[in-house]
Every structure is written in structure tokens, then in C-alpha cells.
Design a protein around this nucleic acid. Structure first.
Lengths: 118, 118
DNA sequence: GAGCCGATTCCTGAGTCCTTGAAACATGCC
DNA sequence: GGCATGTTTCAAGGACTCAGGAATCGGCTC
């Protein structure tokens, strides 16, 4: 994950329709949602949604897969996680105070299990 | 932290000069850096930097404080952290798999101490 | 093949962002 | 006051973004 990719991801998420869309897709992992249903859920025309999905896809945050007539979109959690990590990296390189409270806030809801810890 | 503020923060960071500037400020917490020195470090004209700093300030990510002739800018880590939390919230609300590896990646460098844990 | 449906592509007008020269403002020092 | 320094504000042009109507494409069913 480098600066260019991070900028693309941030720009992709810095737009109400796209942020909502992406959050819907994160919620619905790993099932995904069809493009048309996304348009309905977010209440925008299909072509508008298509343009936004293409932005998100270009940023690597979502991926679409054709399934008969529909195209099912899914969030790429790995990519999203690495964007977050890139942004939080600085804290490791000199400012542990940034991450520590964040981890504290995050841990109660979904602490890593033994199996997941590396 | 609501959607509007999050969008503003993401848009503010989704620009190379501003992202670099913000990361410099995070590194240099809690000392801060003067506007002019930031312009020199990032290699942009002073007025360009001033415009970017004003965007970052409007998003709540940085704050400037006059100190004699200079204006010292500092990153607002609390604000930044709450943006991150907003983005990661979904994982708590339905998708623990997103956060767990992130916590694992983050913990080695800066685990919360007893005093900081809530 | 004909028709339909889901999705994308093309296009265009309106709006916003980025940059930078020039001007203005604030502060400190003589 | 006069001047230098650090910073912001103003204005303008070029580039990019967003939304949605119209046309097009791909795939299914009959």
C-alpha cells in the first residue's frame, strides 16, 4: 500500500453515496449485493451507481463478479484494512499514543482470537 | 463523529500535499510545525500551503495557534482517531473479521497499557 | 431471432478543487 | 513610524467531479 493507492481509496470514500455504498457492502460481507439492488438501497439511478461502483473498484475497495444477469459487488476488506494501516502507520513510527486508545476502543467488540493472532 | 464530518476528513486527506502535511504533523506531535516550515518541508508555495492547512483545519484534523510571528500547526489526534473509529464501526456491527487482523497488526507496535485501557 | 432485464458507457452542464500571483494583514524590531 | 518577516486572503484559470438522460452491451427466456 503506497501513497497513491491510499489517496485513491480516501477519495473514493470521501463522497456520501460511495461511503454509504461501501458500508453497506462491508455489512453484507461475504454475500455481496447486486449493482441494481445497491442503487435501490441507496436510492440513486442505476447509471449513477454504476459510476460510483467503478470509482470504488478502481480504488480497489470493491470487486464485482458477474452472476448470470446481475453483477454482485463485494467489499475488499483486505484492501480496506491496509488503507487503515497505512494511515495509522505513523503512530508506530513515533507516536504510540495514537493507536493505543484506538485499540482499546476496538478490542471490546472484536478482539483477535488466538487463531487469528499473528 | 457523523457522516458529514467523516466525509470532510476523508476529502481533506485525499490529496497528496495535505496527506503528506498531516502525516508530518502526526510525526511531530506534540510539538507542531510552523506554517512556513511546512511549506518548505513539503515544497509548495506558502499560500498554497495556507489553503491546504485551512482545509485540514476546517475538517478538524489540525489546529493552528499563533506564536509570535509564526503560526504553529498541530494534528488533532483525537479527531483523527474518531474518524478511523467511524470507518471501522461496521466491523463491530456485523463483521468482526475486519477488525481482528487489524488489531493484531497494530498491537505489536503499540499495545495499550493498563493505564490507557478503558 | 425477438424481447426483456440488469448493468455499463457516453455525453453534457453545473459545480468544485487546485494552484499561484498579487495584495493585505499581523507581529516584532529598530 | 518604518521596515522585514510570516501568514492569510483574494481573484482567476485550468482541471477534475458529480448527476442523470440516452444509447449500448451482455445474458436469459421463449
Amino acid at each position: 500500500m503506497d501513497e497513491t493507492h491510499t489517496i485513491a481509496a480516501l477519495a473514493a470514500l470521501a463522497q456520501p453515496t460511495r461511503l454509504r455504498t461501501f458500508r453497506l457492502l462491508v455489512e453484507r460481507e461475504p454475500d455481496g449485493i447486486a449493482a441494481g439492488e445497491l442503487a435501490r438501497l441507496v436510492d440513486v439511478p442505476q447509471n449513477t451507481m454504476s459510476a460510483h461502483l467503478s470509482t470504488l473498484a478502481q480504488a480497489g475497495l470493491v470487486r464485482g463478479e458477474r452472476q448470470s444477469r446481475s453483477i454482485i459487488y463485494r467489499a475488499d476488506l483486505d484492501r480496506f484494512r491496509s488503507v487503515m494501516l497505512y494511515l495509522l502507520q505513523d503512530c508506530c513510527g513515533g507516536n504510540a499514543n495514537l493507536c493505543a486508545p484506538l485499540i482499546s476502543d476496538l478490542t471490546p467488540c472484536c478482539a483477535p482470537t488466538e487463531a487469528q493472532a499473528r
